[in-house]
Design a protein around this nucleic acid. Structure first.
Lengths: 111, 111
DNA sequence: TCGTTATTTAACGCAACAGTTAATTAAAGT
DNA sequence: ACTTTAATTAACTGTTGCGTTAAATAACGA
């Protein structure tokens, strides 16, 4: 399993995808705050966080009894880089996407 | 399971990710050509192609006994759109993370 | 110290996944 | 019509993934 397939696997679960989106939107959050947002048990959330952490998607910071989680930008960048690496394949019908996003993919940093 | 999680699930298998990459690089290919590139059996390849097709990642064209497969650009675009939707989170933040790591290595999880 | 809070780990059940070989469908070639 | 080729579906097996509840770990406050 490559790093990228592990990243995709981590994001293939709806709960985990939502977690990552919430962490990106709201910034660093403790595990408990994430538990509150889902109907699954705390241990289930903890396991999801572990999967995300082991896939390199999030990072953990301990403070007292709390564990704060945040998305690692590098993980998102590796996905962006992969899509951009194959841009020439799908850019043919990109106009619609460009119009929707009003962005220029050429400005993306691929370092 | 949302469309996007299904897309990520389809790409979470190394064989399928490689298939998609080969189809993007080489264009439309018959199933047999893909079988040749892997050590798994033809039925296994066929199943992978079905998963990719049901996830909307590839499209099938029948010609005689051959089934030609090709990546659907829209699938790649939906990934690109998701990453771009969260671009403000990850763009240009690589240096910041590196600085954090250099300053507080013990706060960083190394799993 | 003791009980409470935050979070993870342990143990277990069940559904889904990926691989195999055997059988099936379907189009071509002879 | 018969055989070969291309590909899929069927049936079975071992593994992985996600959920649960119960137990463990660790820091906090009284």
């Amino acid at each position: 399993m490559t790093d990228l397939t592990r990243t995709f696997a981590a994001l293939s679960d709806p709960t985990r995808l939502t977690m990552v989106e919430r962490l990106m939107a709201q910034g660093e959050l403790p595990a408990g705050a994430l538990v509150a947002g889902f109907r699954i048990s705390a241990p289930a959330v903890s396991r999801h966080l572990r999967v995300l952490r082991e896939a390199g998607l999030i990072h953990q910071r301990a403070a007292g009894t709390h564990r704060y989680y945040a998305v690692r930008p590098e993980a998102m960048q590796s996905i962006a880089r992969w899509t951009m690496d194959h841009r020439s394949f799908w850019e043919g019908s990109l106009e619609r996407l460009d119009n929707l996003l009003a962005l220029n993919p050429d400005t993306m940093d691929t370092a």
